[in-house]
Design a protein around this nucleic acid. Structure first.
Lengths: 235, 235
DNA sequence: TTCGATAATATGTCTGTACATATTAATCGC
DNA sequence: GCGATTAATATGTACAGACATATTATCGAA
């Protein structure tokens, strides 16, 4: 339903038009599309505007761009989707449910070797091990199993008496820059099954996240969501 | 390891510096940071450069921007992560495994009402129902359950004899613009269990995707991944 | 006091020009 | 012909100025 006269203006219009041509196979997958300068002239806009539009499309994986080689329509649609990793409290409250959480464990111990290896810490290092059960309307919603590196934490930190959830506390108090996230479906472990009130081995949606403050590992956390949880994308 | 003199240049340097100040709590969560013009002057760059940096941070959910209100550090770190939804064949081949697929079902039938409702089609509409098992090194990797709207497809289309997987065929031959994706962990249905060679009820990682060509629904597909599958993100 | 019009402001975007950079294409010497 | 150097080219980024737009703050009238 491409209304010629109306529609968006500026770089979004350029993006839409390029997308339309790709969809109509005027520009076939794998083919090189005209250079920015040419498109700019055709559309009567500055090259920067075309650049913005094409850059956006490249971000979504619709086209691939390389210097000198030009811009070509992606043959393999590695579509990129943006997912929002929400703060649990807000997610629960956003559903109109009542949020609460409950500390189920907290100790300063030596984690199993895989955890240390994953974070690049020396064998034998001690870390906080904090487990939290998050509740929505009093029912188990998410079981959180977190390892915390004491190093970047303020001195005298004691995670056993938080006013906020550990995650929110961290966000407010500890620097962290980047990390990586993995999603998977896994059978509920014994502990998770108990806490989430599901049979052992039942499917739980798992988000595993590591975060770093510069070079220093901050935390490794495993979030196990109860049944029915869905992670959606925008765009 | 913030090397003062070296490091990136241009807008990436601005982004890094802003991120650093946020990390060090020089700009606290919730606080408004100086306007673009001011930062541009401080860093000795054009406002457009600062804009680019801040726009990028807003995209990642680190800051929130609103006209006139200014830019403020996100209090609730709704971190956005970009996930790549790969083409199965490439994903398998990327692991150095041998890819194959096997059509397990194909029929033009009236889908269950939820499917039609989800796609906004009239009750009683007929759709292609195509199920495919994707194999990695001969072992079940992914079970695909797809509903295809015949309307946007070329006349005389017959999905029962594809040279490529349906997904790749679609990408090359049917226009599609946008869609939405949801991730979840679900117990394997009887059929999925059989095809993926896992016990019934075992956890499968499910990606459910709907795609649209403009106003016309194209396909609704449920991808059930076998055990051990992980979806990773960068950033 | 409160509601509504108005001004002020920060971001959003566009333009045109300029230079940087990566990569391909062409050219030259052998 | 073939390999190495050089030129050409398309994108990446920067800049300064300008106008658009959303939203807040202010001020005046009822």
């Amino acid at each position: 339903m491409t209304t010629p006269g109306a529609g968006p203006k500026g770089w979004e219009a350029i993006r839409a038009e390029v997308l339309r041509r790709i969809d109509r196979r005027e520009w076939a997958p794998g083919a090189v599309i005209p250079p920015e300068a040419e498109l700019a002239e055709e559309f009567g806009v500055a090259r920067a505007t075309v650049n913005r539009a094409l850059r956006e499309l490249a971000l979504q994986g619709v086209v691939e761009r390389r210097r000198k080689a030009g811009t070509r329509v992606a043959t393999h649609p590695v579509r990129r989707a943006v997912v929002e990793i929400p703060v649990t409290r807000l997610e629960v409250e956003g559903r109109g449910q009542c949020y609460a959480f409950h500390l189920t464990g907290c100790a300063l111990v030596v984690p199993p070797p895989p955890v240390l290896a994953r974070l690049g810490l020396a064998p034998g290092s001690r870390m906080w091990h904090v487990t939290t059960l998050h509740l929505a309307d009093g029912r188990p919603f998410l079981y959180e199993d977190r390892w915390l590196n004491p190093a970047p934490l303020p001195a005298g930190f004691d995670p056993s008496e938080p006013a906020l959830s550990i995650n929110e506390w961290l966000v407010k108090n500890v620097a962290y820059t980047y990390g990586d996230i993995a999603f998977s479906a896994e059978p509920a472990s014994e502990g998770e099954a108990l806490q989430l009130d599901v049979p052992k081995g039942a499917p739980v949606f798992v988000i595993e996240r590591t975060t770093w403050a510069g070079e220093v590992p901050v935390t490794l956390v495993r979030l196990a969501y109860g049944p029915g949880y869905r992670l959606r994308t925008v765009l």
